[in-house]
Design a protein around this nucleic acid. Structure first.
Lengths: 193, 193
DNA sequence: GGTCAATGTATGCGGTGCTCACATTGAGCC
DNA sequence: GGCTCAATGTGAGCACCGCATACATTGACC
């Protein structure tokens, strides 16, 4: 890698700059386009194509970073849950991530991902395993795979339903309360006798 | 309403034709644009704007139709479930709808919906109520709202995870088996003693 | 039969992703 | 130090998009 040469013809580290710029636009909720990212990075419209073959590749890189952030968010400062109540907090954290960074969350999950991006595949697997481990710790007697999938489904579905305004909620606190209640209710349900 | 005048200057029933054409393109998995729909309907690129103020309005109309189809699909030829097993089949039907008509399902759920379209809001509410009724019938002792939300979350989340290829599955049969197992597992989970 | 609102068309603007030919330059070799 | 070359930037251009605006056609009603 050559030393950065900011201000000269060659940018120095365009790839990283493009990712950072694009991520910033996502956080600000702005629409996203290769050209817009290039513009904001102060570079010609075609320069990004030297570093990403197409738009999807840039999105994949952002998604991978988002998945790592999500995993860190879920794991960070929190022990693996041991009770349904603690598990519910895990789910709340998942949904809150989605609401805090909606555009990024959609990029991570809201489209068919290409399985070519090794980095992205690995980051997704890490999230999957983290959720599975959380569930297995709380419900050791159940089939871990089935239950982990169901548990992921609950929080993932709720996240998207709130994101897409299919459920009304006045505030993020209200969302958290509702998610907590729903996760607990599902895992505590008893069929009619 | 004037009589149809096919072949003449005025189309006769462009609005319905546009919806049908667009729905056909969705089913075929084709990309979707106002211009492409107009082209396929044999009409100028700007004609659709006489019937839909913008692209989102057309999408909303399609989404409303899709929501009605989903409700009919779930309710049709099936009594409300009385056991967790029957409830799981309800969930399987939800996910199978998503996999059978992926582009439509994304239109229905995969974006912030505008709450202006009265028809769409009503269709969405019907689906919501149907799911809530299904769950309440199986688990009469739980808080119906919390549980209905959680149950919707499970199937909705699984539907999107499969749609987005976050979960691998070789066939729709395999998906159905997995969804069935996961829904049952969630509602049967018992925490560590 | 004339009028008018509804509904079609043609043209054009600014945006997009992406390709291709060309420019610049830093690094490595002599 | 100068040459060469691959990496990485630029610019012009294509086909497409959503949408606005001005204009054309026509069926329904008086």
């Amino acid at each position: 890698m050559p030393e950065a040469a900011r201000g000269s013809y060659h940018h120095g580290d365009l790839r990283a700059t493009l990712i950072a710029t694009a991520m910033g636009m996502l956080e600000r909720g702005e629409a996203f386009s290769i050209r817009a990212v290039a513009r904001e990075a102060g570079v010609s419209a075609t320069a990004p194509y030297r570093h990403f073959p197409d738009r999807e590749a840039l999105e994949s890189a952002l998604a991978a970073e988002g998945l790592r952030d999500l995993a860190a968010d879920l794991a960070g400062g929190r022990a693996l849950p041991r009770t349904p109540e603690e598990l519910a907090e895990f789910g709340v954290a998942y949904v809150e991530f989605a609401l805090r960074r909606p555009a990024l969350f959609r990029l991570m999950f809201g489209n068919e991902c290409n399985t070519d991006d090794e980095e992205r595949v690995q980051a997704a697997a890490a999230v999957h395993e983290l959720l599975a481990a959380a569930i297995t710790g709380v419900f050791p007697d159940s089939d871990p795979l089935d239950l982990a999938l169901g548990g992921w489904g609950v929080v993932h579905g709720l996240a998207f339903l709130y994101l897409d305004r299919k459920l009304s909620a006045a505030s993020t606190e209200e969302v958290a309360t509702q998610v907590r209640a729903s996760v607990r209710a599902v895992f505590a349900a008893r069929p009619r006798t």
